[in-house]
Nucleic acid binder design. Structure first.
Lengths: 147, 147
DNA sequence: CTATGACTTCGAGTGCGCTCTAAGTCAAGC
DNA sequence: GCTTGACTTAGAGCGCACTCGAAGTCATAG
């Protein structure tokens, strides 16, 4: 009664490739996908949801081996709930650090872009006001600050 | 007169390994490091600054091949300033998208953690109020919502 | 003078996360 | 019945960004 789908449909639904879905299964990230009589995989809705969860962990930078460990804990049942929550929280705090860093990198990048736009204006102005020779002249000094 | 340093000191100063500094040089990211008589590299302050800039690009997810392209543009001189600014701006906007995504992933992760902490409380409560048999009982139903 | 150790080059190796190939099975449409 | 095409497996291959090893050179300390 609960609708299931083939690996191809699951791939479309989750944005993964069939290769990746099989790969996740064989490394232990998706231990128990049902099979039809002929041996083909049938993905249930909760399987698809779980793929989504795995994608969330991956996109936030969790290494595959940690994800495997998490799934291993899941298979141990309720006794590991606290451990799993702890894992997620540790991951969360790492993610927070990375987002923080990215914020600072963004500021540095903005400064660099502003510098470049400034030089662009400078060069445009020089060539307009003094002609081609002036442009050639400005090619020296500022080029020594290429960083 | 301007102080320079060895590759080992440069590595310490920039947080890279000497291996990585040589690697960056041979793939074209640091085209012109001075050498002393015996052939050893001497890093100037602006070299170190430039390594910092490369680190910024890498940590914000720019692929090496794009960084190489950027450096190639630098070597073309002032004529490529606009192109370089454009590259940086494109990179900036990608970074913005990724930071945005991370924000949404963070929210999803928080929801998952809240769910886990809720289950933890649930389990603790069940075992405290009704004893071991109740704990065994709760091991079934919620375990079918493992995502 | 010798020994240490930081440096040099070139090329091979590593770890990660897929990604693809080859050879074969099976179900559904014509 | 035949073809098409999605599926199956095991295992190899790939792209990225380093990372390391081997063999040799050289400068400084003892």
């Amino acid at each position: 009664m609960t609708p299931t789908c083939s690996i191809g449909e699951a791939a479309k639904a989750t944005g993964m490739t069939t290769h990746t879905l099989r790969y996740y299964e064989r490394i232990g990230l998706m231990p128990s996908i049902d099979r039809e009589a002929a041996g083909r995989r049938r993905y249930s809705q909760s399987d698809l949801d779980f793929v989504g969860f795995l994608a969330l962990l991956r996109k936030t930078g969790m290494p595959i081996r940690e994800m495997v460990e998490f799934v291993r804990l899941m298979q141990q049942g309720d006794g590991s709930v606290a451990d799993r929550a702890t894992m997620l929280e540790r991951h969360r705090s790492q993610l927070l650090v990375e987002m923080d860093e990215l914020g600072r990198f963004m500021a540095a990048l903005d400064a660099k872009i502003a510098f470049y736009r400034g030089r662009e204006r400078e060069l445009r102005h020089a060539s307009e006001s003094a002609g081609v020779e002036a442009e050639a002249r400005t090619s020296d000094a500022p080029a020594t600050t290429p960083v």
